[in-house]
Amino acid sequence: MGNLPPEAVLGTQQSAFELELARLIAAATNLDLAPEQIDPAAPLFGQGLGLDSIDMLEVALAVSQRYGFSLRSDDADNRTVFASLRNLAAHIDKHRTK
């Protein structure tokens, strides 16, 4: 998570990058989510926010356009990337090219 203070990473409060990503997800899925209220540790797909596989496609496309790399969800490791806003943010932070 780069140079963010540890409490932003460990607590349930969103980091600045998690909020940026939450906004991207809300825009990509068109769901009436309040981006700042998405619990960064809670599941993104299935129960919880109710995001489905089409949303996952929309989010993946938006991420590839904004951050310049492709997401995958097709093995156990990749599935954990989509498990929560926090995991997704950490993964993007590590692999982004822009």
Binding site: S53, M56, L57, A60, L61, S70, L71, R72, S73, D74
Partner: peptide
């Protein structure tokens, strides 16, 4: 596969 990168890899 679901996502474009997964389809390409498969």
């Amino acid at each position: 596969p679901l996502l474009p990168a997964e389809i390409a890899a498969a």
